[in-house]
């Protein structure tokens, strides 16, 4: 009620400004959503409709394209591979990154700046290129065309984020809480377990999801490092020229959906994480 009265009381130029603002927001929302909608239209139409012309702007709700995609040689394997690599990446980047983030947020020590520099340096390097030398290295150690090998490269991509994000998450928990736990009888590990962990858990989950998405979406390294064991992105890239349209669109859709869900899950953390992580 109060808001309506306030809006009514606004002077004319303010109202016009309000209107322009709303229009801009709606336009930008459409800009993001319409392409997604169109992809969905293609995905939920029969292969004939996808290849046909002209196209309708509403889907037929036909699962033909999707079942064609699902039944296509190598697709289910690629999906599974993508999930495995993303899971491995998630575990490794959080497992390695969170302790580092904790150390950066809680201790002052010699070499701290060098480590930060190392992490920040990764930002100035086109990391997918790492796949080139690692392809050779992996052949030597028998990791070539392996999901674990690819997960190692993806971890390199996700680790700096994991370090910076967990650093900012840990920094958000006052040192005093841990110290209070120490004075109340906790060991260092006990205080972490009883006080820090319950508070940090949701944030860690969010950064884990972030790592998952980074790996799930990565194309270049995946295409360079996997040959028989294709991930979904590698599979789609290599069949871009040869595969029929319905396959591409259904594949694109399947690639997008988990990402959408994940971003929805972590939306609360997205900004808080970047707030400090971008220092």
């Amino acid at each position: 009620m109060t808001t309506t009265t306030l809006t009514d009381a606004l002077p004319a130029h303010r109202k016009r400004g309000r209107f322009a603002m709303r229009a801009a927001v709606v336009a930008l929302l459409l800009w993001v959503l319409v392409p997604l909608w169109l992809l969905a239209v293609n995905t939920f139409s029969s292969p004939d409709a996808v290849n046909g012309f002209p196209k309708s702007l509403v889907p037929e709700f036909d699962l033909g394209s999707l079942s064609f995609f699902a039944g296509f040689q190598g697709v289910s394997r690629a999906l599974l591979n993508s999930a495995i690599v993303a899971l491995l990446t998630m575990i490794m980047s959080i497992g390695l990154g969170a302790p580092a983030g904790y150390a950066l947020s809680r201790f002052d020590f010699r070499g701290k700046e060098s480590f930060r520099l190392l992490v920040l340096m990764t930002r100035a390097f086109p990391l997918p290129l790492l796949a080139l030398p690692l392809a050779v290295m992996f052949i030597r150690v028998g990791l070539d065309d392996s999901l674990f090998g690819l997960a190692l490269v993806h971890t390199t991509l996700a680790l700096p984020f994991a370090v910076l994000i967990t650093f900012s998450l840990f920094s958000g928990i006052p040192m005093e809480l841990e110290e209070a736990a120490w004075t109340l009888g906790c060991t260092r590990i006990g205080a972490f377990h009883k006080v820090v962990w319950p508070l940090i858990r949701p944030g860690i989950a969010a950064s884990a999801v972030f790592a998952f998405v980074i790996s799930w979406n990565e194309v270049f390294a995946a295409s360079v490092l996997t040959i028989q064991n294709r991930t979904l992105t590698a599979f789609l890239l290599q069949s871009l020229d040869v595969s029929p349209m319905p396959l591409k669109f259904a594949g694109g859709f399947v690639l997008v959906v988990p990402a959408l869900i994940f971003i929805f899950l972590v939306r609360k953390y997205l900004f808080a994480m970047w707030g400090i992580a971008n220092r």
Binding site: V32, L33, L36, N217, V219, T233, L236, A259, L260, I263
Partner: peptide, 13 residues
């Protein structure tokens, strides 16, 4: 949320 959706979308998609 809508504005950040593309953040989760791969360049291939």
């Amino acid at each position: 949320y809508v504005f950040t959706i593309p953040l989760g979308i791969s360049d291939l998609a």
